[in-house]
């Protein structure tokens, strides 16, 4: 183990992702990276910086703006023995290439009766908060997690970002790796200092499908992923000032979903608030609440609550977008409403 006091090594998520890809490319010649502006530019979110200098343009391939073409090509390459990491620059652009993603990438293992696997990573940026409007700011976690055949992960910090990328590249099933732009450490996308954490240099794996209790508490469970974890941690700080002890669960993965960790936490606290930057309806928040309710409703001391993005297109105007986004104050207000309902 590294001694964090004397060998601290803080990385942004952008750097952690690039480091994991570089290490796997050194280890395994079948790994290559493909996408728009991922070569000399280093990715518009910084997550492929330095790769083309070390590995050259055959293994770090800049593509035209033709997502259907290059994501389909990645599926074919994966089925033919390669391990592509392919980038869909903004998840919002899935509309032009979803056949490649959910009819080919997600299903070809099943369609082939298990004779072919599709060991590829689709990395894609999510989230808003920096006024980039409704076609560059969505999360769409529920959209991807809903469809069978793909693993889905979304890190909240650089340590998990590196270990999840390494795990995703080594995984024989397709993995959708969703990284939140506001956690990348890129400045112009907003800055969340809590995402830039100590990250070991040696390679390691963060298990896909395992949630983490990132703060222990006894009065209420706050469940989130990616930016939602940071909102929940800030809410937990505010609640603590009033003597309320909040536990925070970082889902880390949506598929497979670690329902046991969520249920164990709610069994302890009896109260559940789910935080999600994806839309309110038909999404992660409803799935987490159902996970608890269909298991043992007797554990709940209050009706669960959700703090999510309202069911409207994401506004461009800063004041309107900020009004819609989840934040710590909304989580605290949800807890207060829960207390009031309990009497």
């Amino acid at each position: 183990m590294l001694d964090q006091q004397t060998n601290e090594r803080r990385l942004t998520i952008a750097r952690a992702m690039a480091e994991a890809m570089a290490q796997e490319m050194r280890r395994d010649p079948s790994v290559f990276v493909m996408g728009e502006d991922i070569g000399p530019f280093g990715g518009i979110f910084g997550n492929t910086r330095g790769l083309i200098d070390e590995f050259g343009k055959d293994r770090v391939r800049d593509t035209p703006i033709s997502e259907t073409g290059f994501i389909s090509a990645a599926v074919g390459a994966a089925m033919d023995g390669m391990r592509p990491v392919v980038e869909l620059m903004f998840v919002d652009f899935f509309g032009v290439c979803f056949d490649a993603i959910y009819n080919q990438m997600a299903k070809n293992t099943y369609f082939s009766g298990g004779n072919s696997s599709v060991p590829m990573v689709l990395m894609t940026s999510t989230g808003g908060g920096y006024s980039d409007a409704g076609q560059h700011s969505q999360c769409l976690y529920g959209t991807f997690a809903h469809l069978p055949g793909m693993k889905v992960v979304s890190p909240s910090n650089a340590y998990d970002a590196k270990g999840l990328m390494t795990a995703a590249i080594r995984e024989d099933n397709p993995v959708v790796y969703m990284y939140h732009k506001g956690l990348q450490g890129m400045g112009w996308l907003g800055t969340e200092p809590g995402a830039t954490v100590h990250t070991p240099e040696e390679d390691y794996v963060v298990e896909i499908g395992k949630a983490k209790v990132v703060r222990e508490g006894s009065d209420v469970t706050l469940v989130g992923l990616a930016m939602g974890v940071h909102n929940a941690l800030k809410a937990a700080d505010k609640l603590a000032e009033d003597g309320v002890s909040a536990e925070v669960v970082d889902l880390v993965s949506l598929v497979p979903l670690d329902r046991e960790t969520v249920r164990a936490s709610v069994a302890k606290t009896g109260r559940l608030i789910v935080v999600d930057e994806d839309y309110h309806s038909y999404g992660v928040t409803g799935e987490i609440i159902a996970t608890v309710c269909e298991h043992d409703i007797g554990k709940l001391k209050a009706a669960p609550a959700r703090v999510a993005f309202p069911d409207v297109p994401i506004p461009y105007a800063r004041n309107m977008e900020q009004f819609c986004l989840p934040n710590a104050d909304k989580i605290v207000a949800a807890y207060r409403a829960m207390q009031k309902a309990e009497g």
């Binding site: 803080r10 942004t12 450490g185 890129m186 400045g187 800055t191």
Partner: peptide, 13 residues
Amino acid sequence: AVITNWLASDGQA
């Protein structure tokens, strides 16, 4: 320019 990230901590060697 803006300082976007400190990748070392105050007081660190």
